[in-house]
């Protein structure tokens, strides 16, 4: 067994931190999305209700997709793709309910999604799930469960997705184009998730060229881009029609 700087760290924290870190990272993302929405000029009531609904959707979809995929309710874990789908469902439902700064609301949630995922990945690193491919380099990690030297793919994903969040945040604040920012963040996130899966050990267990995670990432990306286009085209036009109807009595 090769000794690395991560050995004692992983052993000391153990698993119970998994759910706390996952829920904490989602809560942090929700709080940041609320701050961005407030800065973008949304009403306070819209922000509060959107935050609650999106948090519920993330949690429910993240947990239920795990059951849906494994078919085993005893394997209580959180799926990143389910969380992303839940975030999209919550944000899009809120846009329909409140009709308040639709584009900004969509962008706030899309931008913070990579941060939630990135922070939640530290829970995977600590608990020893979603492990990387065998690797014997400088940053190798060894888990107690199998004692194999592995690439720290979870920490790499954490750093990468936190970087994507920062890029999206600066782009939103500087450019002031929420939908363009949403599209860029979605495309970069899907590419990052798709690419990083090749460094996961689980990727090579499946016989198909694309793993389940990659297929889910592509599906999430297509749905997200579709919803952004709906917000851009259909909802915008409907709002103009509604306003003109009120004006003419």
């Amino acid at each position: 067994m090769k000794a690395t700087i991560f050995d004692n760290y992983i052993k000391s924290l153990h698993f119970p931190f998994y759910s706390t870190i996952v829920i904490g990272s989602i809560l942090l993302g929700v709080i940041l999305a609320c701050i961005i929405m407030y800065r973008e000029g949304l009403k306070r009531t819209s922000i509060i209700y959107t935050a609650f609904l999106t948090f519920v959707c993330i949690m429910v979809c993240g947990l239920s997709l795990q059951i849906w995929l494994t078919g085993d309710p005893r394997r209580l874990a959180f799926t990143g793709a389910g969380g992303a789908l839940g975030l999209l469902i919550g944000a899009f439902s809120s846009i329909f309910i409140h009709r308040d700064h639709e584009k900004e609301m969509m962008a706030s949630w899309v931008v913070t999604a990579p941060l939630m995922y990135g922070l939640a990945k530290t829970a995977c690193h600590i608990s020893g799930c979603c492990v990387g491919i065998p690797y014997h380099g400088k940053w190798a990690v060894v888990y107690e469960s199998d004692l194999i030297s592995r690439f720290p793919v979870q920490l790499s994903e954490s750093l990468l997705f936190t970087l994507i969040f920062l890029i999206g945040l600066f782009m939103l604040l500087i450019s002031g184009k929420p939908l363009l920012t949403s599209r860029v963040v979605i495309v970069i996130s899907v590419i990052a998730k798709f690419s990083m899966d090749y460094l996961r050990d689980g990727h090579y267990l499946a016989k198909s060229p694309l793993s389940q995670n990659q297929i889910l990432a592509l599906i999430c990306g297509v749905i997200a881009l579709g919803l952004v286009e709906i917000v851009n085209n259909i909802l915008g036009k409907k709002q103009v029609k509604g306003e003109s109807k009120i004006y003419h009595g």
């Binding site: 009531t45 209700y49 609650f52 519920v56 085993d72 439902s93 409140h98």
Partner: peptide, 24 residues
């Protein structure tokens, strides 16, 4: 299990959505 968990999730989210519509 897959069908039942999906049904439970959809109804739970729908309950929240309807409550928020009522509040708004």
């Amino acid at each position: 299990f897959s069908v039942l968990s999906s049904f439970g999730s959809v109804t739970y989210i729908a309950a929240w959505v309807l409550m928020i519509i009522a509040r708004v």
